[in-house]
C-alpha cells in the first residue's frame, strides 16, 4: 500500500514539476541592482562658475546644483547656500533646510584649511541646533568645493561640531 502511495506522491511531484514548466512564463522579480549609475556630463550655465551648492529635493535628498555665480570658490558657494534656493531651484522643487540668514551675515562665512584633511567652516549662525539635513548641506557644499576626500568641521558662534564627510544619501 505504502509503495502505491509513494508512487502516487512521486507522480504528483512530477506532475507539479511539469505544471511548473508549462505554466511559468516570465516571473516578476524584486529590485535588482545592475551596474554603475549613469555618469553624465554636467555643464555649468553660461557665465556660471562650476562651484556646487547642495539643496534638498522634495523627498529630502541632497542634490548638487551649480551656484549660478560667475565667481568660483568655496566661500561663494557657501554664501550661495546660505542665501537659499533661487527661482530656478524652486521651480524644480529644490529647497533648503537652513534657516534664513541675513545676507550681510552670510557674507562673513569663512573656510580654513584643509589641515590634516579637515577643513573648518566658520558660520555666522549657531550650529548646535542646526537640523541634520542643514548641517549636511553645509558639509557637502564645503567639501565639494575643496577636495573630495576631506571632512568638514562646522564652527558657529555657539560651538564647534565634530568633523564629518559629505553624505548625500537619505537619513
Amino acid at each position: 500500500m505504502s509503495r502505491i502511495r509513494d508512487a502516487a506522491r512521486a507522480a504528483s511531484a512530477a506532475a507539479a514539476a511539469g505544471l511548473l514548466l508549462a505554466g511559468c512564463g516570465i516571473k516578476t522579480t524584486g529590485v535588482v541592482e545592475s551596474g554603475a549609475p549613469a555618469e553624465v556630463e554636467v555643464r555649468p550655465e553660461e557665465g556660471s562658475a562650476d562651484s556646487l551648492v547642495y539643496f534638498l529635493t522634495p523627498d529630502s535628498r541632497l542634490v548638487a546644483t551649480h551656484s549660478g555665480y560667475s565667481a568660483p570658490g568655496v566661500q561663494v558657494a557657501l554664501f550661495r547656500l546660505l542665501v537659499g534656493p533661487g527661482e530656478r531651484e524652486r521651480a524644480s522643487g529644490l529647497r533648503t533646510a537652513l534657516p534664513p540668514v541675513d545676507l550681510a551675515l552670510a557674507g562673513t562665512t569663512t573656510v580654513e584649511g584643509p589641515a590634516d584633511d579637515v577643513i573648518e567652516v566658520r558660520l555666522p549662525i549657531d550650529v548646535a541646533k542646526l537640523p541634520d539635513l542643514a548641517r549636511r548641506q553645509v558639509v557637502c557644499t564645503a567639501v565639494a568645493n575643496a577636495a573630495s576626500h576631506v571632512e568638514a568641521r562646522l564652527r558657529g558662534p555657539d560651538t564647534v561640531l565634530a568633523p564629518e564627510p559629505c553624505r548625500t544619501g537619505p537619513l
Binding site: V63, A64, A144
Partner: peptide, 14 residues
C-alpha cells in the same frame, strides 16, 4: 540615477 564627476567625487545630480 545620474551622477556626475566633480572634484574627484560622484555626487548625484538628482
Amino acid at each position: 540615477p545620474a551622477v556626475f564627476r566633480a572634484n574627484g567625487a560622484r555626487p548625484p545630480t538628482g
